[in-house]
Amino acid sequence: MQKIDFPWHGNPDFQLQIGSNLPFRLASNVKNNGSIGINILDGSGSDARPYPLYGLLPDGNDGPKIVEMYDKIVKTLNPIGT
């Protein structure tokens, strides 16, 4: 983990790097219905594709795994109440 940011909505964004792969951002955003979405972004804020450039291995059902990775980082950093 290289950096943690807290955008206006209060959910943290993480800048990560896996080994010598390109760094990426694991970013949260608030959708119109109030739910939280999690995206993997490159340094410019665009979708980080293809994932293998960042040390990530896609399997075609990435949405739930991206959220799981985000939740695991949050719980690791804040173990109170987990």
Rank of each mutant, 00 (worst) to 15 (best):
M1N: 12
M1H: 14
Q2T: 06
Q2N: 11
Q2I: 10
K3V: 07
I4C: 10
D5G: 09
F6M: 14
F6P: 04
F6I: 15
P7A: 14
W8S: 15
G10L: 10
G10T: 13
P12C: 15
D13Y: 08
D13P: 10
D13I: 11
F14S: 03
Q15V: 10
Q15F: 04
L16K: 03
Q17G: 02
Q17D: 02
Q17M: 04
I18N: 15
G19A: 07
S20W: 05
S20T: 13
N21W: 11
N21K: 12
L22Y: 04
P23I: 02
F24G: 01
F24V: 05
R25G: 00
R25I: 00
R25W: 14
L26N: 00
L26S: 00
L26E: 04
A27Q: 07
N29M: 05
N32P: 02
G34L: 01
G34A: 03
G34I: 02
S35V: 03
S35C: 01
S35R: 14
G37V: 14
I38A: 10
I38R: 10
I40W: 04
L41S: 05
L41Y: 04
D42E: 14
G43A: 11
S44H: 10
S44A: 14
G45M: 02
S46L: 07
A48L: 01
R49Y: 13
P50M: 10
L53E: 09
L53W: 00
Y54T: 12
Y54F: 15
Y54A: 00
Y54H: 02
Y54W: 07
Y54D: 04
Y54N: 05
G55E: 04
G55Y: 02
L56D: 08
L56F: 13
L57Y: 03
P58D: 01
P58E: 10
D59C: 04
G60K: 07
G60A: 11
N61I: 12
N61Q: 10
G63C: 11
G63V: 15
P64N: 05
P64E: 01
P64T: 02
K65M: 07
I66L: 11
I66W: 11
I66N: 12
V67T: 08
E68D: 15
M69Y: 13
Y70S: 08
Y70N: 12
Y70D: 10
D71I: 03
K72D: 08
K72G: 07
K72A: 11
I73T: 11
V74A: 06
V74P: 01
V74M: 03
K75C: 08
K75T: 09
K75F: 01
L77E: 03
L77P: 09
N78A: 10
I80P: 00
G81Y: 01
G81I: 04
T82D: 15
